[in-house]
Design a protein around this nucleic acid. Structure first.
Length: 478
RNA sequence: GGCCCGUUCGUCUAGUGGCCUAGGAUGCAGCCCUCUCAAGGCUGAGAUCAGCGGUUCGAAUCCGCUACGGGCUACCA
């Protein structure tokens, strides 16, 4: 069993492609199959430098591996189509020899005019087979010196069909298919020729790709037939859609996998979410690791309709996976999201207290900033609880400083009873008192639990911040 | 326009002829817990299963038509 994923090096890998690749991966891995990464770079105009590396990066980050590919090598090297040109050219020639294809000398200009005329007459915009009937010898002669492409000679009659693994039976009338270009004038094959040849040569046993390819299946079938090859079983997965129901693209925001890493998403969460977008286990479980998926995913349960990208749901899964991390692991994952100069020992102490408060790893920074900088400027009016006033608050601050100053050791379990006692003494609610202190030491209304925050901040700094809050509040009118 | 694919709560989905007065999750609302925010627990609103016609004792599930959405219609993949 051999499966392939075949991205084009036109930029960072798209999140929708990752879903397709994931399904290929799950299918192959659960059956002990071999996975192949093949780079489809037959469009020289769309190449983007560094794209192959970013494909490697992105896929490795989400935890997808493969066995044969451009860097891995393998029995069918090379795995980059631009390095396999002679193979395609030879096969295109074979198709001509078998009368399944023909030379076409039409210029792009003629094609453009043809199309414009057809449109004006509200006709089908299709190649008019102008070159199809040039005598073979003459065409071969002209091909030696004139620029040309090679087109597939599509029969006028007949039916082409597949039993798609997700859609079931699909069929086409040959008469509705165009004489597709299979070899371009620059000597490069089009996708249609290259994919058929490579899938066959590389011994691919199952073709699984996005549903946008369904329409070109009949052309591929014709090519298989002309070579006398058998087309492998195919599965076309539904698209990942944007909020407007159209296929997810850059118009809907960034779709690059690397962007999700940078935004603080866990690969576990992304995979979990993506797996469920288009597939369902049929049970009420929904949290799955990659290993779980390899076990339970089934192609029979893949959805045939497209699914809209739902960031809220991704966020939920990210929270789930963040909470599943051990503290050490969480600290490791947080590494790229906090400044290098922040003390890692402090980070580790506060980590368990922010773990269930993060939607993304990116959220940590703001949550714990107060531990690493004294620059927590805030509006002094925020210090005063709703039903209180400046003097009373000042008093509370002073008492808090005194109470906290006596705590030894300065740990949450000691801080809590002390502050609870103080609140009672003051006739304040615990919430009001804690709110004032939280504002004084963090500069924010919300944050990690207060007693733990004080402990991690340390006695000295805690007292100093309360003192500063007192000064701030004392200094002048509201 | 042509060809093809699709259509169950806002969203992701369960459902393969009776268990469906349609289940779960997310999001939303409320309550509980609670030092804030979260997390967690509970409750609730939310889908005449796109519409119509047929098959059947019985249809979200099978068939047909229509509507709507999407993909393809390049010397792009």
């Amino acid at each position: 069993m051999r499966l392939r994923f075949a991205p084009s090096p036109t930029g960072a890998i798209h999140i929708g492609s990752v879903r397709t690749i994931l399904y290929n991966y799950l299918f192959a891995r659960q059956r002990g199959g071999v996975l192949i990464l093949r780079v489809e770079d037959t469009d020289q105009d769309r190449l983007v430098a560094g794209a192959i590396e970013s494909i490697y990066d992105g896929l490795h980050w989400v935890g997808i591996s493969w066995d044969e590919g451009p860097h891995e090598g393998g029995p069918h090297s090379p795995y980059v189509q631009s390095e396999r040109l002679p193979l395609y050219q030879g096969h295109a020639q074979e198709l001509i020899d078998k009368d399944a294809a023909y030379y076409c000398f039409c210029s792009k200009e003629r094609l453009a005019v043809l199309r414009a005329e057809q449109e004006a007459r509200h006709e089908l915009t299709r190649y008019d087979r102008h070159c199809r009937f040039i005598p073979v010898e003459e065409a071969a002669e002209r091909a030696k010196k004139e620029p040309h492409v090679i087109r597939l000679k599509v029969p006028d009659e007949g039916t082409l069909a597949i039993e798609d693994l997700v859609h079931g039976h699909i069929e086409w009338q040959a008469s509705t298919i165009e004489d597709q270009v299979i070899l371009k004038s620059d000597g490069f094959p089009t996708y249609h020729l290259a994919v058929v040849i490579d899938d066959h040569e590389m011994g691919i046993t199952h073709i699984m790709r996005g549903e946008e390819w369904i329409a070109s299946v009949p052309k591929h079938l014709l090519i298989y037939r002309a070579f006398g090859w058998e087309a492998p079983p195919m599965a076309h997965f539904p698209s990942v859609l944007g909020p407007d129901g159209k296929r997810l693209s850059k118009r809907h925001g960034s779709t690059a996998v690397s962007q999700f890493r940078d935004d603080g998403y866990l690969p576990e969460a992304l995979i979990n979410y993506l797996a469920l977008l288009g597939w369902s286990p049929g049970t009420e479980e929904e949290v799955f690791s990659m290993d779980d998926l390899v076990r339970v995913w089934k192609i029979e349960q893949v959805q045939s309709a497209g699914g809209k990208w739902d960031k809220e749901r991704l966020d939920y899964f990210n929270g789930v996976w963040i909470r599943k991390l051990s503290v050490d692991e969480l600290v490791r994952r947080l590494e790229p999201f906090v400044p290098a100069e922040w003390d890692r020992a402090v980070l580790k102490k506060i980590a368990p207290h922010i773990q269930e408060r993060m939607k993304t790893l990116k959220d940590a920074r703001e949550l714990i900033r107060f531990l690493f900088t004294d620059d927590i400027g805030f509006d002094k009016r925020l210090l005063i609880p709703k039903k209180s006033d400046r003097l009373t608050t000042l008093e509370a601050l002073a008492r808090a400083r005194a109470v906290l100053g006596e705590i030894e050791p300065f740990v949450a379990t000691n801080i809590e009873p002390a502050l609870v006692g103080l609140a009672t003494g003051l006739g304040w609610s615990k919430g009001d008192l804690n709110g004032v202190i939280r504002m004084a030491i963090t500069g924010r209304k919300v944050g990690p639990p207060l007693y733990e925050s004080l402990e991690v901040l340390g006695k000295e700094k805690s007292l100093k911040r309360i003192e500063k809050a007192q000064e701030l509040l004392a200094g002048g009118p509201d």
